[in-house]
Design a protein around this nucleic acid. Structure first.
Lengths: 193, 193
DNA sequence: GATTTAACGGAACAATCGTTCCTGAATTAG
DNA sequence: CTAATTCAGGAACGATTGTTCCGTTAAATC
């Protein structure tokens, strides 16, 4: 019959995530994609349709990966406050390890496209909602276990946490390389919990 | 001698701020600028050089306006905590009043360009530094007056405040229209002060 | 009125954009 | 082997990109 696929579609998507993450949607050209994914123009368009669809698929894949990671960590956790702290520390570390500070693909895409692309807007909203739920459940668990203060409602704290997470990712994108700045923010955030 | 300028350069810059703010750098075409500023192609290039320079000037003008506003409010303030609260409330209101939620021009530009354009990167860094100083001085004043808790250092709180301010502006850019979300964040932030 | 500069409209530029299409080689299954 | 399908390579598409330049009109000073 026919020849089978040679390249792994998911692997190509991971490459697409990287370059879109780094350069943004408008900043990434079709030629960039061909070069970086290592596919021919024709294969690329045959497989993914067009640039917008490829971007959308990339962002959805990124979202799933990022969400699953956080979700799993928090659900398995026995001390939610500590786990949240670990998640923030990890975000801070990522802002330094990469020479190219890419920030957060979701945040970057929100800022660049959410108001101009309905499909991306949906993904972003879905992400916010899911993350809010994940954080809310985590905070509730922490409050019940006595690790987290009950002075504020779980949902309030969840939104607060998510907001600071976004802020930190923006900070990373600006190229801030003074670790103390990040540490100070995390310190203040966790003084609330 | 010569004919005098007919259009106000600053007025044109304000227009440029608006459209760059809304559509971003890469999302704004030369034609968009001609149409929106109401200048001819030739006048535009004669006056501002090229697109990058026009963007840079726009961002610098925006920065000065935004900084002066916050700086003045905080320096004149007799209750810094209340004034900071007003500033946040204002940011929240702006996220609703505009049908087109533009977020913050500085945050948007940071995310889109800071890593790819050295000049923009400098403006962004300068802005972060200045805002940190402004907030730090304000917090110090509030702490001395007894309005703000001394549990955390002024600089720590300043960075924390700035981070949440950025986060809220990203949230606005995502199109979040549930006021409760913003209010919850502000509530949690001010529980620290 | 003559000169000088400002601004305009619009043509035109080369370059790049995203996208389509064609050819030919490679690889699989029957 | 044949047929089917996948990929690479590259030419080519029209559209749009940012930018330059020219010709003309409008206003200001001398």
């Amino acid at each position: 019959m026919a020849r089978t696929k040679e390249f792994d579609e998911d692997q190509a998507l991971d490459k697409a995530i990287e370059i879109f993450w780094h350069k943004g949607y408008n900043g990434t050209s079709a030629q960039d994609l061909v070069t970086y994914l290592g596919l021919s123009r024709s294969s690329l368009y045959d497989t993914f349709g067009d640039k917008q669809k490829l971007f959308s698929k990339s962002l959805q894949r990124y979202q799933k990966q990022a969400q699953d990671s956080v979700k799993e960590l928090l659900e398995k956790s026995e001390n939610v406050k500590e786990t949240l702290h670990d998640i923030f520390k990890q975000a801070v570390i990522e802002s330094f390890e990469d020479r190219i500070t890419k920030g957060c693909f979701m945040v970057n895409s929100s800022v660049e496209l959410a108001m101009h692309d309905e499909e991306i807007s949906e993904i972003v909203k879905n992400n916010s909602q899911t993350m809010e739920e994940v954080f809310t459940n985590a905070v509730k668990k922490g409050q019940e276990a006595g690790h987290i203060s009950k002075a504020l409602e779980a949902k309030v704290l969840a939104r607060f946490i998510f907001n600071n997470y976004s802020g930190i990712r923006v900070l990373a994108r600006t190229g801030e390389r003074n670790k103390q700045v990040y540490d100070d923010i995390v310190k203040a955030v966790f003084s609330v919990l």
